[in-house]
């Protein structure tokens, strides 16, 4: 097992790093109370997915997918297209999330999830301390 992991890591280090970053992002989303921090975690989780997809399109000794006479091996353009649009859509959704946070702050005067849940009337022991 240890042997397998040590060999697997060398050829797949991109995926391993993407998974570690995705775990950090996920922890930020579910483990933190501050809504702004949650959105930052969402961004990190998103970039981990980008990293994973782009890694799948890489070809050893390939070049960027722009046709030229002297090159024959190109990396895969399809994951790049998917991620390009995902980045721009990601910032649009981030803007939406921030707009909601600004409104929540104006209405409830807090961006802390615990305090928001308390305001909602869950204070009678229903809220466990997550």
């Amino acid at each position: 097992m240890i042997n397998y992991i040590s060999i697997h890591w060398i050829s797949h280090y991109n995926y391993w790093a993407a998974i570690v970053i995705a775990m950090v992002g996920l922890y930020m989303i579910i483990g933190h109370n501050n809504l702004i921090k949650k959105v930052a975690g969402l961004n990190i989780l998103q970039t981990a997915v980008f990293l994973m997809y782009i890694s799948m399109g890489v070809i050893t000794d390939g070049t960027a997918p722009i046709a030229a006479e002297t090159f024959t091996i190109y990396s895969n353009p399809l994951p790049q297209v998917l991620m390009l649009t995902a980045i721009v859509v990601g910032v649009a959704t981030t803007a939406m999330a921030f707009a909601l946070i600004v409104r929540i702050k104006e209405t409830c005067n807090t961006v802390d999830e615990d305090e928001l849940l308390e305001r909602e009337g869950h204070q009678n022991g229903n809220v466990e301390e997550w």
Binding site: I54, S55, A64, I66, Q80
Partner: peptide
Amino acid sequence: MDAPDVAFTE
């Protein structure tokens, strides 16, 4: 990683 378009956008 040979993805200039994505790098640009990011």
